[in-house]
Design a protein around this nucleic acid. Structure first.
Lengths: 342, 342
DNA sequence: TTGAAAGCGTTACCAG
DNA sequence: CTGGTAACGCTTTCAA
């Protein structure tokens, strides 16, 4: 009825009347064991379906071959596809992953970190929660020498490696594209100002305006928090201005889709009256009408890169690196007021 | 430079000049230890940032408090939100989860299972890959007494508990809703006919028609494969019929969104000219215009249920159960030709 | 070529 | 109330 203990080395040893050491060595193909003995032991191991006990091994080496991940949530396509990239690299290197989510909450993030450390994962990959502004829980890891890699929302970049997207560049290109396709007053809907991605994308937005000598007007920038509601509210606010924008850059997918709803309610046409660019994936861009021009993250690649970086650190290479994975601007119908002149 | 071994019970014991047993008991609040001693030990444990070594514990109890999951992929919203439900229940019970993906591939599924067993997870939650038709790798678990729960795509229901959705009912209700809100000719866009969900949802569709004594016309049923393109093609085909439908049920999210695109290209209004219902989640239903009436799976709840079931089995309750989680029809603008009469 | 024994960190039982 | 010791499964010296 209750599950019996799995086969151990000792079981094999006693069944064959040899010592545990011999069995251990035979299964590791140690050259000191006679061919004959090896054969015999391996055959029995197979027959009894022997599997080495990972706890014993972890206890010995203090390395369970598990990587911990902390993401704001796992349901969002952005994170799940990054996790997918991490997972594939991990498995290829015979590591498992354990995923935890902070739900954008600072206290839960600390809890996740605590849990992962308690499990004794060999390294951790983190995307900060939106709420997090104090990083001391991560600094503690540095002192404990636990490998850590940040992605997307990063901090303490002197101490920890990170994988980021070219937030500034991507916004710069998106806004340049808007200008080149006929937009003149461009609004920006972002998130809480303390977040790096907000700063960076906003900076790219501003740079593009400067580059085209378009005056910067701070009422065209709406930065509250990231989310569908906030995108909706933001677009409403912008479109209710005395001089509303004729283009909007929504800094995430939910912001852009929220903005799209508000634009429809103002009875404005996209892109004729107002162009719209968001940040999202191939699939969802095409679900809406008009299809949304969007900055696409190479999420899978980000995950792969973060995991490779972490494995390097786990293996002892302590060089801190910042790797940038470029975004791709996928132009669709929502942004082209008129064709860009060659 | 290299990470030093973490603080152990022995470290604490020797620092205080007491025995390991005493420290162990003190930290577990054993009543046999004097208040004074407990205080002292706990204080030091905190100061030294002591954490119990989970490998030692797992070795002792053969129970790492980890649950394994096998899904076709983690990127799809459907699966990631189910995982989210599993995860939350697991954490509440102080379990971690390890996620693996089969990528709809039979051999990879076997590999995932193998890996999870090697890690010695305490139980496994599985959604079968599309390719899998041979279940012997799971039957083996039954003999080894490793707890296993299936969800969505299930098998061996006599031996293992499972959590499923009411595919037939959900389609039945969706079609009934269409009829009750004024649609008369209802098309169905599905996927490959050999898939269970296709059979079941189509069956629900047909049942609803019969129930309302609406003649069944097989040219209104388009079943090729699941995907955006196929939804687009299907709707095109249906709308090009001599007598086109005035409502369409798209059997998945991608089918429905593809159909939506085709409907727009035919210059038809939704829902006035043609009603549309899909299967998708809250978030994406609202991204489109008009918001899509959709059958919503209670994915999070499915995950929770599967995990609770598994934990029950882990605790020794071996009763096999089949649990059906009902879908919810979320009525939005895309389906209501006129108000349903009370 | 093989065996014996120590050690990894913890719990639990038996003594004192 | 506290200490000693065996046990969990494995690797790794050291001996034979």
């Amino acid at each position: 009825m209750d599950k019996k203990r799995p086969i151990s080395l000792r079981d094999l040893a006693s069944e064959l009347g040899v010592s545990i050491s011999t069995v251990s060595r035979a299964l590791k193909n140690s050259p000191e064991i006679s061919m004959e003995m090896k054969e015999k032991i391996k055959k029995l191991a197979k027959k009894r379906n022997y599997r080495p006990n990972p706890f014993a091994m972890s206890l010995l080496k203090n390395a369970p071959r598990i990587i911990g991940i902390i993401v704001p949530d796992i349901v969002t396509h952005y994170y799940s596809s990054i996790i997918s990239g991490i997972n594939d690299v991990a498995r290829k290197n015979e590591y498992s992953i354990i995923i935890t989510s902070s739900y954008e909450n600072y206290k839960l993030e600390m809890q996740c970190l605590e849990d992962l450390i308690n499990i004794r994962v060999e390294g951790i990959i983190v995307c900060l929660s939106q709420e997090t502004t104090d990083y001391s829980h991560f600094e503690a890891l540095y002192d404990q020498n636990i490998p850590l890699v940040f992605f997307d929302r990063v901090c303490l970049i002197r101490k920890f490696s990170s994988v980021i997207t070219d937030n500034e560049d991507s916004a710069f290109h998106a806004v340049s594209h808007l200008i080149e396709t006929g937009s003149k007053r461009i609004g920006f809907i972002g998130g809480a100002n303390h977040l790096e991605i907000v700063k960076q994308r906003k900076h790219g937005y501003l740079q593009a305006l400067r580059n085209y000598r378009i005056p910067i007007e701070k009422e065209l920038v709406y930065c509250k928090k990231i989310g569908y509601e906030s995108g909706y509210d933001g677009a409403h606010a912008l479109l209710s201005l005395p001089e509303p924008p004729d283009a909007i850059l929504g800094m995430t997918d939910s912001l852009a889709f929220g903005a799209m709803k508000a634009i429809r309610e103002h009875n404005l046409r996209i892109p004729e009256d107002i162009s719209l660019i968001g940040y999202t994936d191939e699939v969802h861009s095409n679900y809406v009408e008009p299809p949304l021009t969007a900055v696409t993250h190479q999420t899978y690649k980000m995950g792969e890169t973060a995991c490779k970086l972490l494995l390097k650190h786990i293996k002892g290479n302590n060089k801190v690196e910042q790797i940038t994975i470029p975004c791709i601007l996928s132009v669709r119908a929502s942004s082209i007021k008129h064709q860009k002149k060659e």
